[in-house]
């Protein structure tokens, strides 16, 4: 669950910090899969991000673990909320099925975290 994900204080409201793709990736590390205790990035669900700094817009391509994901709304909501904190005005989430998400996409750190929760991958 995503409790406490939004605790990060926003100190750079002045937008002096550039809206880069690296920053989006960093921010997405704070957004968890609503059904797993690890982030979308560690789950390997982030397939790509593209930033338009002029428009302050970002598109995030996400590969869901299952076509039947019951939490699409939650994920979209959490990603949007977190990236708006970074200073984006428009956040678009695009679902990607190709190539399909597989367990191999989970990061080393993700695996470690999941095993701490008693979930084997």
């Amino acid at each position: 669950m995503t409790r406490g994900n939004y605790a990060m204080p926003m100190t750079d409201e002045k937008t002096s910090v550039q809206l880069t793709e690296a920053r989006v990736w960093e921010a997405l590390k704070d957004v968890n899969d609503p059904e797993m205790p690890i982030s979308l990035v560690d789950m390997g669900m982030v397939y790509g991000v593209s930033v338009d700094p002029q428009e302050r817009a970002v598109t995030v391509k996400l590969g869901l673990t299952a076509t039947a994901c019951p939490a699409m709304d939650f994920i979209r909501e959490d990603v949007t909320k977190r990236l708006c904190q970074e200073g984006f005005r428009r956040v678009e989430v695009e679902w990607v099925w190709d190539p399909p998400w597989t367990k191999e996409r989970i990061s080393e750190e993700g695996r470690l975290l999941l095993s701490c929760w008693g979930i084997s991958v």
């Binding site: 409790r3 797993m36 019951p70 929760w117 979930i119």
Partner: peptide, 14 residues
Amino acid sequence: ALAKIDKEELFHLR
């Protein structure tokens, strides 16, 4: 066993 159960119940709650 409750570690996993707890996580999933949080989704139901949300």
